[in-house]
Amino acid sequence: MSEGELRGRNRTQRFLFEEADIRGEIVQLEDCLADITAIHQYAPGVHQLLGEFLAAAVLLATTLKFEGRLVLQARSQGQIPLLMAECDNELNLRAIARGAQQATSDRFDQLLTGGQLAITIDPSSGKRYQGIVPLVEDSLAHSLDAYFRQSEQLGTRFWLACDGQRAAGMLLQQLPAQQVEDRVRRDAQWEHVNALAATLQPQELLTVSAPELVHRLYHEDPLRLFEPAPARFHCNCSRERTLKALSTLPREEIRELLEELGSITMDCEFCNQQYRFLEQDLDGILQSDDPGTLH
């Protein structure tokens, strides 16, 4: 892990309770948050919420035990129609807020009014899975808590913060019984770690290093702290993928665009990368009998 990869504390760090079946994860993002939000001029409230989504996507992606990506997406009738953050198993991040140019609020319930939260797990090989819950809580962290309660998985809690310059989050999650079999004792341990986490202030989460945070909260509990892993902004768009998306358009529409413009240009909304296609680049599409097929 190079020094450059950890600049600006763009990293996540895991910790494990030695005498309880509970793990934790703390993510802190700075430079990669700036890289992502520099592409679009978001209002402060949108910027802050996008940072929380990025932190949450990293925390969720750390639970993946296979190659693939996790997509955290909210659709709403509020000031942000669509907000999406993606993170893969190598902690490559990208995010977008779509249709939020007129957003003025910094309130969660106004930005994502009547919204739904979808968590999509997309493995490189295997079946795609998606879970959806209403955004009925007053924050993304509480909405994620509700998602995991509804899915009847092991106890999972989130704490998220973003001040526009930095984004951070902490996850606590119960593990299958190995250290402790007794249900009453397991419940007591879970309540204990959550009660201490409830004292965490957003500014601490944003500014205090993960090792120091863990020490402040759980210095009386035996813990194992793992090496940090770097997170980075990386868009997985490519000329090949863009061409494939273009191939889904009707051939006559493609021909009309070429006749009118001489070429077709497509921009990636995540990173603003521009891809330009001339007529010879599109021969495989135009000669195909079926839309969406490349020769």
Rank of each mutant, 00 (worst) to 15 (best):
S2H: 12
N89R: 11
R239V: 05
D35A: 14
E256G: 05
R75D: 10
L154G: 10
H215Y: 15
A141K: 04
A55V: 02
R98L: 03
E253N: 13
T104G: 09
L60T: 10
D138F: 02
Q287W: 05
L258R: 03
L278K: 12
D281S: 01
L60F: 03
D31Y: 15
A55F: 01
E253V: 00
L144D: 04
V133A: 01
E269H: 03
P202M: 04
L213A: 00
Y129V: 13
F226Q: 02
L154M: 07
Q150D: 06
A43D: 11
L278I: 06
S76P: 06
Q153Y: 15
E152P: 03
P134A: 10
C162G: 09
R185P: 01
L261D: 13
F158Y: 03
Y218V: 08
I26Y: 15
L70E: 07
T120Q: 15
R232W: 08
I39S: 06
D163Y: 04
I254Y: 04
S238R: 01
N92E: 15
R276I: 08
Q274W: 08
L196W: 04
A197S: 04
E152Q: 11
P230S: 14
R224Q: 13
Q77S: 07
F53I: 06
G78H: 00
P228T: 02
E137K: 14
R149H: 09
T120I: 14
E19G: 05
L59I: 02
L112Q: 00
E269P: 12
I285A: 04
I121P: 03
D35H: 13
F277Q: 05
Q150V: 12
Q101R: 04
R75M: 09
A100S: 08
R7E: 15
E220Q: 10
L50G: 11
R224F: 14
V184H: 12
V71L: 10
I36F: 14
V180Y: 10
Q101L: 00
V46R: 08
Q273A: 15
L217A: 02
L29R: 03
E67D: 13
S125I: 14
A197K: 03
L257H: 11
Q13W: 01
T37P: 12
C271D: 07
I264E: 13
L206H: 02
L82N: 09
Y42Q: 10
I121E: 08
D289L: 13
